[in-house]
Nucleic acid binder design. Structure first.
Length: 856
RNA sequence: GCAGGCAUGGCGGAAUCGGUAGACGCAGCGGACUUAAAAUCCGUUUUCCGUAAGGAAGUGGGGGUUCGAGUCCCCCUGCCUGCACCA
C-alpha cells in the first residue's frame, strides 16, 4: 500500500490547476455568476490560523458553487496600508513598503500552499499606486458630490511623540511608546458624509436577508435612529440660547438642570471668566476619545452658575452644568436632565443635590423615586405635575410638547441619529494621500485629475516625531492649481477603512485604468457570499455599505449593497501554557507526559495549563499553519478546520484533532487505493436484480441520503455536519461486507460519491482519489452529484411512545400511518401497559411519523 | 458603561417546525494483530442506583407556558465581540 503522500499530491494538483488556469474567470453574461469573497488579509508577516479558517470556508463555498454550475469569482488581495508597517519602520529600520511587500510575498506563498481556488490574476494590494490612484479619483468624486468635507474633531494627542494616537495606543491615559499623558486636541480633518445615507443604511438592513440577524441588529443600534425634539433654552440675563436635543420632551416639566459637553462653545465661553471651570474642562480633555472610556468614567459635572429659563413655566429657571458624559458629537452637545425618568440624570442629580420631580406615573411606577429612575414610556403611562400635558400618556405628551415648542418658535420635532460622520484623515505616512491642496488664497483646492496619482514619497525617515509627510523637505510644497501661488499639499492620508470600502468592486476589473468598469462591476456585484470575522460587524461593513452608495451616487455601479450574503466566522483558539515563573510558553515548548501532566521540553519544569483563548502572539498560544501543512498537508488542515465546530462559533485547535483529521485523510485514501471488499468496474451499471440486494440497497440509500444532506449542509454553512456525514458514509462503506455484484456496484458508487462530496473541502485528496478510481477527468470540472429521490425516501419510521412525557417504548411502523392506528399500537405496547398500570388514560396526543404521548 | 452574542457528557459538538437528548469526532477504557511499538481492526464510554432486567436524574442557575421545553417567555450568572484612529 502506498501511504498517501500529501506533499507530493498537493504539489501535483496545485501545478495542474495553475497550468490549466482552472480558477481564472471572465465575466460571461450568458452564465449565472457567483462572487465569493473572504475579507482580505492585512500583510502582517505570516498567515495565521484565523486566515486558514477564513479562506478554507470561502474555498468550500467557491468550489461547491463552481460544481453547481456558477461562474465563480474568487479573488485575493492585500489590505496593505496601516499602522504596523510604520511601527516596523521605527522599530526595525525597514521602509514600510519593503516590509509590506516582503510580507505579501511570504503570505502569498503560504496561501498558495492551501490549494485555494483563487483567481490570482486579480490580486491587488491597496498600497500599490495602481490601486490608490483610483482611490484618489474616488475621493475627488465624493468631494464633488458633497460627500467629503472638512470639520474640526477631537483626537488623542501625544505631546512627546507629537503624533495622534489610535485608541488602542492609549493605555491608561498615556501614549504606549512615550508614556506621556495623552490629551484631547481638536484638528481640522476630512470627513465622509455617511449620515447622508443614515436612513437608507438603516432601512436597507431589512433587505439583507442573508446577513446574520445579530449583525443587522448591531448595525441598527449603531445607526441609532431616534425621534425627539430640538429645543432652545434662553440663558437668563443674556440673549444667548442653548439648544438641546431630547427624546423625552414629555418630561420637560420634570427638568432640573441643563448639561453641556466640555467641548461645547458655551462651556468654552464661560471658562474664559472661570478658572475652576477651565480646569474642569482641561481635566475632561485628559480622558481619551474612546466612547468606552468616557462611558465608564465617573460622571462629573461643574455648575457654571448660569441659569436658563424653563420653556413652559414662567419664572422657573434651571442651572447649567458642564458634564463629562455629554457628547459633543451627539445631538447638539447639550441635554436637559429629568432625574425622575432617566437613570443617568438621576445619578447626576443625587450627586449634586438637584431636585427629583416625578412627572410620569404608570402601573409599575414606584411611590417615590429612590435610586432607580422610572423610564416606562408606553400607552399605560400618565403625565402628572406637568401643566398642559397632565393626563396624557407619554406618546401623546411627546406630540403635545413638540407642538407647543414649535408654536412658541423654540424648536421642532426632529429625527436624530447616533451615527456620526466618518473621519477619514490620518496623520500618517503609510496610507493613501488625500488629493487636496491648501492655498492661502483659494482655500482647499482638489488636485486636478490629470495630476493624479499623488504618490507617496519614498525618501522618508521615522526618526523624528510627527508625520513624515509633514516634515519631508519638498513633498508638500506645490503650486496652487488655481492661482499658481505657493501652496501646501494635504499631508493627511486616508483611514485604511477607505481602502477596504471598495476593493471588492475593484476586483471586478483589477487592471483597468479607471477605478471601476461599468460592465464588469454590474455583472459581478454584489458579492454573493462575503466571509469574515464578527469583529467587523459594524465599522468595516457599514463603511463599505456607505461607500457603495457613494459609488452609486457618482455613477460607478448600479447596486447599493456590497454584500448580498454575509457569514461571520468564529475565532481559532488554543490552550495557553505558562512556565513556573509565569512566562507564557508556546505549544511547541511543552509536552504532555503519559500521566497527563505538562512539562517544559527544555528543562522539564512543570507547566500550568491555562484557559482556552483566542490565538495571540502575546499569549504565545499560536500554531503556525506552515508547520501544520508541512506535517499533515493542506487538506488535513482544512478538514480539521471544518470538522468539529460550526463555522460561526469559536473553535479550539488541538494537536489531537489534527491527528484525527490526518488519520481520516489516510482512511479515505485507502477506500480508493485498496478497498477492503471488491468494487465494480468503473462505469458499470447496477447488476440485474441488484435493486433487491438488501446490503447493497442499504448502502445505496445511505449514499444518496448523504448527497442530499451534504448539499443542504454546504448551502446552510453547517460544514461540521457535512464532515460528520462523510464519516458516517465511510463507516457504512466499511460496514458493508457483502461481496455480491450489487454490493460491489454500491460500494463503487458510494466511494465515488464520497470522493466528489469531499472535493470542496479536501480538493487535492479528492482529485487523487478520483484518478486512483480510474478516471481521467478532473474533479474541478465535474458537476455536483445528484441524489436519486427514490433512494432518499424512507418507507418506515420510528415512533417514540411516551407516557406522561417520558419515553417508554418505540414503534417501527410504516411511514404516514394514521393517528388512530398509531394510538392503538401504542396502547397495546407491553411496556406502555405496564407503566399505565391500569390507571385511566386521560388523553392521547398523536403526531404522525413522530410521537405518541399517553397522558394518565 | 452601552450594544450584540454564546452556555448540551472528560472535550468539540448533533438534535430541520416545541416531539426518542448526546449523531459524528476527540480523549479514555477493554480486546485482536505484533517480539515490541506505531498504524490498523473489534468492542465500550452522560451521571447515579442495580449482578441484571430495569429505574432515577440530566442541556449554566431560578421561575413560567405546554400533553411534551436543549428549543418559547421572564429573571439571574459567567464568558466572548464591538464601541467610531488596530485591522
Amino acid at each position: 500500500m502506498a501511504r498517501y503522500n500529501s506533499k507530493e499530491v498537493e504539489d501535483k494538483w496545485q501545478r495542474r490547476w495553475a497550468a490549466d488556469g482552472a480558477f481564472a474567470v471572465q465575466a460571461d453574461p450568458s452564465r449565472p455568476k457567483y462572487y465569493v469573497l473572504e475579507m482580505f488579509p492585512y500583510p502582517s508577516g505570516r498567515i495565521h490560523m484565523g486566515h486558514v479558517r477564513n479562506y478554507t470556508l470561502g474555498d468550500v463555498v467557491a468550489r461547491y458553487k463552481r460544481a453547481r454550475g456558477f461562474n465563480v469569482l474568487h479573488p485575493m488581495g492585500w489590505d496593505a496600508f496601516g499602522l504596523p508597517a510604520e511601527n516596523a519602520a521605527q522599530e526595525k529600520k525597514v521602509h514600510p513598503a519593503a516590509w509590506t511587500y516582503d510580507n505579501i510575498a511570504t503570505m502569498r506563498a503560504e496561501l498558495k500552499r492551501m490549494g485555494l481556488s483563487l483567481d490570482w490574476d486579480r490580486e491587488i494590494a491597496t498600497c500599490h499606486p495602481d490601486y490608490y490612484r483610483h482611490q484618489q479619483k474616488l475621493f475627488l468624486d465624493l468631494h464633488k458630490a458633497g460627500l467629503a468635507y472638512r470639520k474640526e474633531s477631537a483626537v488623542n494627542w501625544d505631546p512627546v511623540d507629537m503624533t495622534v494616537l489610535a485608541n488602542e495606543q492609549v493605555i491608561d491615559g498615556r501614549g504606549w511608546r512615550s508614556g506621556a499623558l495623552v490629551e484631547k486636541r481638536l484638528l481640522s480633518q476630512w470627513f465622509f458624509k455617511i449620515t447622508h445615507f443614515a436612513d437608507d443604511l438603516l432601512q436597507a438592513l431589512e433587505g439583507l436577508d442573508r446577513w446574520p440577524e445579530r449583525v443587522r441588529l448591531m448595525q441598527q443600534n449603531w445607526i441609532g435612529r431616534s425621534e425627539g425634539a430640538r429645543l432652545a433654552f434662553d440663558v437668563v440675563g443674556s440673549d444667548e440660547k442653548i439648544e438641546i436635543f431630547t427624546t423625552r420632551p414629555d418630561t420637560l416639566f420634570g427638568a432640573s438642570f441643563l448639561a453641556v459637553s466640555p467641548d461645547h462653545p458655551f462651556a468654552a465661553a464661560r471658562a474664559a471668566g472661570d478658572a475652576a471651570l477651565a480646569e474642569f474642562i482641561a481635566e475632561c480633555k485628559r480622558t481619551g476619545t474612546a466612547e468606552a472610556e468616557l462611558a465608564t468614567a465617573e460622571k462629573k459635572g461643574y455648575d457654571t452658575g448660569a441659569r436658563v429659563a424653563h420653556p413652559f413655566v414662567d419664572g422657573h429657571t434651571l442651572p447649567v452644568y458642564v458634564a463629562n458624559f455629554v457628547l459633543m458629537d451627539y445631538g447638539s452637545g447639550a441635554i436637559f436632565g429629568c432625574p425622575a425618568h432617566d437613570q443617568r440624570d438621576l445619578d447626576f442629580a443625587r450627586k449634586y443635590g438637584l431636585p427629583v420631580l416625578p412627572v410620569v406615573t404608570g402601573p409599575n411606577a414606584p411611590a417615590e423615586i429612590g435610586d432607580v429612575a422610572y423610564d416606562e414610556d408606553g400607552p399605560a403611562t400618565r403625565i402628572v405635575n406637568s401643566g398642559f400635558l397632565d393626563g396624557l400618556d407619554v406618546p401623546a405628551a411627546k406630540k403635545a410638547a413638540i407642538a407647543r415648542i414649535k408654536a412658541d418658535g423654540r424648536g421642532e420635532g426632529t429625527v436624530n441619529f447616533r451615527l456620526r460622520d466618518w473621519g477619514v484623515s490620518r496623520q500618517r505616512y503609510w496610507g493613501c494621500p488625500i488629493p487636496m491642496i491648501h492655498c492661502d488664497h483659494c482655500g482647499v483646492v482638489p488636485v486636478p485629475e490629470d495630476q493624479l496619482p499623488v504618490l507617496l514619497p519614498d525618501d522618508v525617515t521615522f526618526d523624528r516625531p510627527g508625520n513624515p509627510l509633514d516634515h519631508h523637505p519638498t513633498w508638500k510644497h506645490v503650486e496652487c492649481p488655481q492661482c499658481g501661488a505657493k501652496a501646501r499639499r494635504e499631508t493627511d492620508t486616508c483611514d485604511t477603512f477607505v481602502d477596504s470600502s471598495w476593493y471588492f468592486a475593484r476586483y471586478c476589473s483589477p487592471r483597468a485604468d479607471t477605478p471601476l468598469v461599468r460592465d464588469e462591476v454590474d455583472y459581478w456585484m454584489s458579492v454573493d457570499q462575503y466571509i469574515g470575522g464578527i469583529e467587523h460587524a459594524i465599522l468595516h461593513l457599514l463603511y463599505a455599505r456607505f461607500f457603495t452608495r457613494a459609488l452609486q451616487t457618482c455613477g460607478y455601479l448600479k447596486v447599493a449593497e456590497p454584500f448580498a450574503g454575509l457569514f461571520t466566522q468564529g475565532m481559532v483558539c488554543h490552550e495557553t501554557f505558562r512556565g513556573a515563573d509565569g512566562r507564557w510558553l508556546t505549544p511547541e515548548e511543552v509536552e504532555r507526559r503519559a500521566d497527563g501532566s505538562w512539562h517544559e521540553l527544555a528543562g522539564g519544569q512543570p507547566v500550568t495549563v491555562g484557559r482556552v483563548e483566542k490565538m495571540s502572539k502575546s499569549k504565545k498560544n499560536v500554531v503556525d499553519p506552515g508547520r501544520i501543512i508541512d506535517q499533515y498537508g493542506a487538506d488535513t488542515a482544512r478538514w480539521f478546520m471544518l470538522s468539529d465546530s460550526p463555522p460561526d462559533r469559536d473553535m479550539e485547535w488541538t494537536e489531537a484533532g489534527v491527528q484525527g483529521a490526518w488519520r481520516f485523510t489516510q482512511r479515505l485514501w485507502r477506500l480508493a487505493d485498496e478497498p477492503r471488499d471488491p468494487l465494480a468496474e468503473k462505469g458499470s451499471a447496477l447488476p440485474e436484480g441488484g435493486a433487491d440486494d438488501a446490503d447493497a440497497l442499504a448502502l445505496r440509500r445511505e449514499t444518496h441520503k448523504t448527497i442530499a444532506a451534504i448539499s443542504r449542509d454546504l448551502d446552510a454553512f453547517t460544514f461540521n455536519k457535512a464532515v460528520a456525514r462523510i464519516h458516517e458514509l465511510a463507516n457504512s462503506i466499511e460496514d458493508c461486507r457483502s461481496v455480491t455484484p450489487a454490493a460491489a456496484f454500491a460500494r463503487r458508487e458510494a466511494i465515488e460519491v464520497a470522493t466528489r462530496l469531499i472535493a470542496p473541502m479536501m480538493p487535492h485528496l479528492a482529485e487523487e482519489m478520483w484518478q486512483r478510481l480510474g478516471h481521467d477527468t478532473v474533479l474541478v470540472d465535474m458537476p455536483w452529484p445528484e441524489a436519486d429521490p427514490a433512494l432518499t425516501r424512507e418507507d418506515s419510521v420510528t415512533i417514540a411512545v411516551q407516557v406522561g412525557g417520558k419515553l417508554r417504548a418505540t414503534l417501527e411502523v410504516a411511514r404516514d400511518m394514521d393517528a388512530k392506528a398509531l394510538e392503538a399500537l401504542a396502547l397495546a405496547d407491553e411496556a406502555v401497559v405496564r407503566v399505565i398500570a391500569g390507571r385511566p388514560v386521560r388523553k392521547v396526543v398523536v403526531v404522525p411519523n413522530r410521537i405518541v404521548n399517553v397522558v394518565v
